[in-house]
Amino acid sequence: MSAALEPATALPSAWEIPADFGGGGAEPYELALRAGGGLLTVVSDGADDDAAPLDVSAYLAPATAAERRVLALTSGPVLDVGCGPARMVRAAIETGRLALGIDISAVAVGHARARGLPVLRRSVFETLPAEGTWGAVLLLDGNIGIGGDPAALLARASELLRPGGRMLVETHADGDRSARFVAQLVHPVGARSGWFPWAEVGERAATRLLDGLGMQTATVRSGGRTFVLATR
């Protein structure tokens, strides 16, 4: 994977026809959500020996103390992009803030709504409520990979913020990581999703992209995770 964020050459159809995260195939992400959690793996370009873990159980649990600390670095209404079952939406609401989650997974959205949480089944690249007025936009849990084009995603997220609003972006553990690829989710029982575009971006690459958008950035570390906090 190159530092220039060049797309992988394998399986070009995943770039030509964007797929939902973990969608298609046997829907392992939705299987894990229905089962109440589980450890999936993210496989890039068919390389099963280069798989990264994805702990769906963490998405179904309450927000951690570390996540609540970084959320507190923002203010105003919160938009959680790729919210999953919406634990961060709940965390924001519990502190008295307005919050909305968006996600493309019908099962994740249904799970959140069943618990009374405000979530829309919608892509960040579609028209959204209150564009340009959000105090905080969250891209956590590797969601900077959404769509496989971090530059486009961060530019879109910045449009959603009000002046002075803050974007909270969780980055890859390797600060120099900068890669775009096609990926697949794999369930322990062997169920596989369709291929979808994805990306992994470390702190330094994310900071460069955000600097290019004219945003002020700072690196925050909490709970062993790294975040870039960007102010519009």
Rank of each mutant, 00 (worst) to 15 (best):
S2K: 07
A3L: 15
L5V: 12
P7K: 03
P7L: 06
A8G: 15
T9W: 10
L11G: 02
A14M: 01
A14E: 01
P18K: 09
P18Q: 07
P18L: 04
A19C: 06
D20V: 12
F21E: 02
G23T: 08
G23Q: 09
G25R: 11
A26R: 08
A26M: 02
E27S: 11
E27T: 08
E30R: 10
E30N: 15
L31D: 11
R34A: 15
R34S: 14
G36N: 09
G37A: 14
L40W: 12
T41H: 15
V43D: 00
V43W: 00
D45V: 00
G46R: 13
A47M: 13
D49W: 13
A52I: 01
L54G: 00
S57M: 04
S57V: 05
A58Q: 11
A58W: 07
A65N: 08
E67R: 11
R69Q: 14
L71Q: 09
L73M: 11
T74I: 08
V78G: 05
L79N: 11
L79A: 08
D80Q: 11
C83V: 06
G84A: 04
G84Y: 05
A86H: 04
A86I: 01
V89R: 10
R90N: 04
A91S: 11
A91K: 09
A92H: 09
A92D: 07
T95A: 05
G96V: 05
G96N: 04
L98S: 13
A99K: 00
A99G: 06
L100T: 06
I102D: 00
A106C: 01
V107H: 02
A108M: 03
A108R: 03
V109E: 00
H111L: 12
A112T: 05
A112D: 02
R113W: 00
R113C: 03
A114C: 04
P118H: 09
V119L: 04
V119I: 03
L120W: 04
L120S: 00
R121I: 01
R122T: 15
R122Y: 01
P129C: 10
P129Q: 08
A130E: 14
A130V: 11
L138G: 07
L140H: 09
D141S: 13
I144T: 13
I146M: 15
G147V: 07
G147P: 01
G147L: 09
L153P: 02
A155M: 06
A155C: 03
R156V: 05
R156I: 06
E159W: 00
L161C: 08
P163N: 08
G164H: 12
M167N: 04
V169W: 07
V169G: 13
T171G: 02
G175K: 12
R177K: 13
R177T: 01
S178E: 10
S178Q: 12
S178I: 02
A179I: 03
V182P: 12
A183H: 10
Q184P: 00
V186T: 14
H187C: 06
V189G: 10
G190V: 08
A191V: 03
R192A: 14
V201T: 14
G202K: 02
E203F: 00
R204C: 00
L210F: 10
D211F: 07
A218P: 00
T219C: 10
G223Y: 09
T226R: 13
V228H: 07
L229N: 06
